[in-house]
């Protein structure tokens, strides 16, 4: 999966939680939860959505690595490559 496809899945998952977001306004290097106003329930549902769509495990201990869109995409690409899919 290339980066654009992955980003599309991430954005679509995010929109299922927060339909009002504008993709063009998301800063890749700024804190995602500040930009999108996700509470911990939204955040968990977002990660569950990613888990279901991408079949990757996201341990809670890794949450701190996922704070910006850029870091999230890096993490997910690594996971997808690592599992060989």
């Amino acid at each position: 999966m290339n980066r654009q496809d992955l980003q599309k899945i991430v954005i679509n998952t995010l929109k299922s939680i927060a339909p009002e977001i504008e993709e063009s306004e998301l800063m890749p290097d700024q804190l995602l939860r500040d930009q999108v106003d996700l509470d911990s329930m939204d955040w968990l549902n977002f990660l569950i959505g990613l888990h279901e769509r991408l079949k990757v495990d996201i341990p809670e201990a890794d949450y701190a690595k996922l704070v910006t869109m850029e870091k999230l995409l890096n993490y997910l690409s690594g996971k997808i490559d690592g599992t060989g899919s």
Binding site: S40, M41, L44, H51, D57, E60, A61
Partner: peptide, 17 residues
């Protein structure tokens, strides 16, 4: 909470709330 969630799949994880 961290120990409890470590054992759980993401759908079953608990929130501090």
């Amino acid at each position: 909470l961290a120990a409890a969630n470590e054992q759980r799949v993401i759908q079953d994880r608990l929130l501090m709330a």
